[in-house]
Simulated scan of single mutants.
Amino acid sequence: MTDRDLVEYLGDLGVAPREAEAFQVLLQSGQRTVGQLGAYLGWDCEEAKKTVRHLMDLGLVTVGGSHRSTVSPAEPSIALDRLAHARSAEVQQAHLAALHAYREYRRCTGSQSTDELVEVVTGPQIVDRIWQFERAAESEVARFDSPPYHTDGGANPIEVDNLERGVKYRVVYSSSAVQNSAYYAVNIQPCIAAGEEARVLTAVPVKLTVFDRRLAIVSMSSVEAESNESLLLVRPSSLLTALLGLFETAWSSGYPMHLSAQVPPALRPLQRRILELLGTGVTDDTIAQLLGISRRTLSRHMEHLYLLAGAANRFQLALYAARKKWI
């Protein structure tokens, strides 16, 4: 790769030419003071300081020394991965914005067809489209979660990232999803810990995810079919409105899986997770399996919760937790 290739590559990732040139110089010559870097590039002191600040914000340089005036190039892989992810998200958002603008044009000209409101996706495109829409979510994701999974039932780091940047998630799980110990460990529990609002029902009516109340993806649950080979995309229409209404009805009927801020802080993390699972209706054996503990350990922690609530059984404990607004 030539120096020119590096500058162009950084430009593709959103790094301005001035910052890219300065980073290139640091990679070639090692650390320099801000003044030395500016003198080498023919910039005045303020230009050099401003450029270094931008590079620090991007994570491409570090500043040290007695007066924090020595600039060194940082190991770039993490920063470049972050920039690449941001650019990818921008491209996806631009793609969706262009499609939305075109459909609005078709609607205004009276040329929108039923085919544009509902689209069938099959084959390897399914997973790509799911991740595409998830990355582009801006404000809220509402989901019915039930096996089987197009994405193999693994972790969902995109949801965790979205939660960190303020996207709200509301998920209604089927009991079959919660009872899958591997799925609970790598997907459900980490997402709840990251801020997902979760509830559970014995079964969900359909596998559904709605992004920002303007696009829904629908597929078959394990109750409906053994195969999972197609996906429906539903755009703004009376059908999308009906799906949103269905979700809200199920959400209001579901049992919460996450605790409120009113839970006593003295409870251990494991006891908090036991409380989260008690409302799902799963058995003690399943709770022990999901948490990776023995029945004896579970019983010991349950006795502590009974004592705290003055309860004699799970039913009384659930009533106490509801009354105290722990859940």
Rank of each mutant, 00 (worst) to 15 (best):
L83I: 03
R143V: 11
L307G: 10
S175L: 15
E138F: 00
A20N: 07
V34E: 11
E196K: 12
A225G: 05
Q24N: 11
S222F: 11
Q28M: 10
Y40A: 15
I192V: 14
Q132H: 14
V210W: 01
A198R: 01
S253R: 13
L60P: 00
V223K: 09
V160K: 09
V91Q: 10
E21W: 04
P148A: 08
S29N: 15
N313A: 04
A20I: 05
I126P: 00
A142M: 13
S175P: 00
T209C: 10
L291V: 04
F315A: 15
A225C: 12
L244C: 08
A86T: 08
D145Q: 14
N180W: 05
D5A: 14
N162P: 06
L275Q: 04
V234E: 01
R273C: 01
E75P: 01
I126G: 03
H150L: 05
V167K: 02
G154M: 08
S219H: 12
L37A: 02
A312W: 10
I158S: 03
H67R: 14
A318R: 14
F23I: 04
L232A: 07
G30S: 08
A266S: 14
D81S: 12
H85P: 00
Q271V: 01
K324N: 12
A185P: 00
D12G: 12
E303W: 09
W131L: 13
R165Q: 08
A311S: 15
